[in-house]
Amino acid sequence: MKLNGKTLCKLFISTLYISTFTFGGGFVIVNFMKRKFVDELHWIDEQEMLDITAMAQSAPGAIAVNAAILVGWKVQGFFGMLTAVVGTILPPMVILTVISFFYEKFAANRYVALVLQGMQAGVAAIILDVAWGLGTSVLKSKEWLHYAVLLLAFVSAFVLGVNVIYIILASLAVGILKEALSHKRRCEK
């Protein structure tokens, strides 16, 4: 992979910008990344972004950092990975260093709380907007097994509160089983 200074620079600015505004956990940053790297810059395709999400979620460590590592490797190899990770961890480090001087006042401030409460509504809208777009492309696949996996995973996660890791592992097992069966069928023919 040829190292491109301009791409690295863009990757750094994008991850810095995304990380600065990522409130509310790992799934939010994955959604911002999808919008930036898939829809806007076309560096990654939609399928790959879903694979990145699954890997970032199931590997140990912070989802945002994991996703940055995967996106960085994909875009510019090792140095892309370093760039994306630095871009992702710099904003929280700087912000927390500044806040640490008056953090008790910050935690108790009513105006701060109200702004954050409003932003939470925006976070829900962003996640569901991305899920909507991804969901329609699953529905277009017209494969009953895809529909079944989508439905079962949703019920397990949202209604039953099953740990996300188990859901990913179970779907992986279904995928392997299906592939093994169709492979066997191909061999018999």
């Binding site: 399928q47 999400t53 979620q57 899920a131 995973a153 996660a157 859901i167």
Partner: peptide, 9 residues
């Protein structure tokens, strides 16, 4: 098969 599950999550 994994991708629809991630969308659900």
């Amino acid at each position: 098969i994994l991708r629809p599950a991630v969308v659900a999550l």
